[in-house]
Write a protein that binds this DNA or RNA. Structure first.
Length: 565
DNA sequence: CTAGGGTTAG
């Protein structure tokens, strides 16, 4: 018996496949070793592991245990939180409590991880109170996991409170905090936190570097980015050397340069990468597309496939953007044809990009067809349609579309869509309509107008020759006027040949830089600048896990065909 | 016998 025990324990340690494990399991049953805690724990551990295991099997074994040890509960919760269905980890945890077991300091990190993935702030809070009740708030792992949960659920302020009570500010806690700021569109603060960390003499590691580089990329802070690059070189760490290459770090560095507009440096680094992945390619495609170098972006797209990588959703988003910019109608259409054969055609993000592309190319009919085919239209899908119509000069249809959107109570207008709406009003010259929407935005939806909104209104009023109203609005607005505001006023002056006002405006705006662009150019990049994408991404991810989304399968043959055109 | 943080994207 004892002999069996030791042999089986050793075999369990060496076990590599689920097949072997099942054999061992039957051996354990015949020798009654399933009653022993340690071998049973090992067994569960192995099965519940997301890589090598078989969760289904783990569950069936687990169900046969009358009194699972806390260790075993933890293993199950860990396995489920790493699975495709993290919400099940929470059910398991709840069951554990209901059956009267007390969680320990290993339980909390696993449960909190599940909360983080599905962004369940409510559940996370209840775990927090349980941590307080059970007295584990000073456990570094539990509190760091708690911090991570809060920032994942976009509650940075609560995360900060947790951070403050973490007994020793370790590198992981700092990294969570930095990532928290980055992912909540507060990249500048993320960099501040990084600098604080330096002051506390905590050495950054590879993961910290990735976080900071993402922060630099998002806030276009190439100086801090270069500092990190330099730091890496100084500690003798070269993420581009094949011996110690770290694809994620290398990609983050490359992307930082790419987003900051140093395309050449990004390209050099990309060439130096000992191994690339789809993210690195996507980063290049996205950056070249963003900086108006659509031809090269498309070149990366083709090369990527020659190199044997399958394009994914992010790839298409970048390439569609490039087509829109480049007016590459034929390629855009074939991308569209390809996408429509995959499950990606139901994807709002892809659909919105396609709508935007067709609208920019001037094919409103195709834009409409895609838009109408979207099962679930979010505010951004509507926005791309409405702004697209407005930019094409079809203000009336843009406004009608906005009214149609408002029939769907689930879509809440945001500040971006109102830029499109106000812009449409100024195109058509509907002053009363413009005021109506401007007021509704403030009073019904509680949106504080930005300089862009004022720009649209000033444009609308001065195009209508209502200079008194326009100037009153400029004087009353609580923000500094920008070049677009002055431009709108000047434009009106020009139409009505109001020389005296023009002179006054030119004097007022003399302190501002003379270059700038019109309202429409502002609009096209506003979403990116306002940075609402991240919130949408969070929401989408939580949907994905809650609904147990299926991953699309697609044939690469079609992609190969596509490259031949 | 178990543990915490990481890359692209409308």
């Amino acid at each position: 018996m004892k002999k069996h025990y030791n042999t089986i324990l050793r075999l369990l340690e060496k076990c590599k496949s689920i097949g072997e494990l099942k054999q061992l399991h039957s051996l354990m049953i015949t020798t009654s070793i399933t009653r022993s805690v340690i071998p049973l724990s090992r067994l569960i551990d192995f099965c519940a592991d997301s890589k090598s295991g078989d969760l289904h099997y783990a569950k069936s074994v687990f169900d046969q245990i009358d009194e699972p040890s806390v260790y075993i509960w933890n293993s199950m919760i860990k396995g489920l939180s790493n699975s495709e269905t993290p919400a099940e980890a929470l059910f398991m945890y709840r069951e554990m409590l209901q059956r009267g077991y007390s969680p320990d300091h290993f339980t909390f990190p696993f449960v909190l991880k599940a909360c983080s993935i599905i962004r369940d702030l409510r559940y996370g809070r209840s775990v927090h109170s349980c941590i307080l009740k059970t007295g584990f708030q000073l456990n570094v792992y539990a509190s760091t996991a708690l911090l991570h949960m809060y920032v994942c659920c976009a509650d940075i302020e609560e995360g900060l409170k947790v951070f403050d009570i973490i007994p020793k500010w370790n590198v992981v806690a700092w990294a969570s905090l930095i990532a928290g700021y980055v992912n909540n569109n507060r990249a500048k603060e993320a960099i501040k936190v990084f600098k604080d960390m330096e002051r506390w003499n905590v050495e950054p590691n590879e993961i910290t570097m990735v976080n900071v580089l993402v922060a630099c990329a998002r806030s276009r802070d190439i100086d801090t980015g270069k500092w990190v690059h330099n730091y890496l070189c100084q500690i003798g760490y070269d993420p581009f050397m094949s011996t110690n290459s770290n694809v994620i770090l290398a990609t983050a560095l490359l992307d930082m340069y790419a987003k900051c507009g140093s395309l050449q440096t990004a390209w050099d680094l990309f060439n130096k990468m000992p191994q690339r992945n789809v993210v690195a390619w996507n980063s290049m495609i996205g950056a070249y597309s963003q900086y108006g170098r659509a031809e090269e972006a498309l070149g990366f797209f083709f090369d990527m496939q020659i190199a044997g990588f399958d394009p994914d959703q992010a790839t298409f988003l970048g390439v569609i953007g490039a087509c829109a910019h480049f007016g590459a109608l034929a390629l855009g259409q074939s991308l569209h044809a390809y996408i429509s054969k995959t499950t990606m055609d139901k994807d709002v993000a892809i659909g919105t990009a396609l709508v935007d592309m067709y609208v920019k190319i001037g094919d409103a009919e195709s834009a409409w067809r895609i838009f109408n085919n979207l099962e679930k239209k979010d505010v951004m899908a509507w926005t791309s349609m409405i702004i697209g119509l407005a930019m094409q000069g079809n203000g009336v249809e843009a406004l009608l579309t906005f009214e149609r959107m408002q029939e769907d109570a689930t879509v809440i207008p945001d500040k971006i869509i109102y830029i499109g709406v106000l812009c449409a009003c100024s195109h058509v010259g509907l002053v009363d309509e413009g005021w109506k929407h401007f007021d509704a935005m403030k009073n019904i939806y509680g949106i504080t107008p930005t300089v862009e909104h004022y720009g649209c209104m000033v444009d609308l009023l001065s195009r209508a020759g209502l200079f008194k109203e326009a100037i009153k609005l400029v004087e009353e607005m609580p923000i500094r006027p920008n070049i677009a505001i002055w431009g709108a006023l000047l434009n009106g002056c020009q139409i009505y040949e109001n020389v005296s006002l023009a002179d006054q405006v030119r004097r007022d705006m003399a302190e501002f830089e003379p270059h700038g662009s019109g309202v429409y150019v502002l609009i096209s990049n506003i979403y990116a600048r306002v940075g609402r994408w991240q919130e949408v991404k969070l929401a989408r991810e939580s949907m994905k896990y809650k609904k147990i989304a299926k991953t699309p399968g697609h044939s690469s043959v079609e992609m190969k065909l596509l490259t031949l055109i």
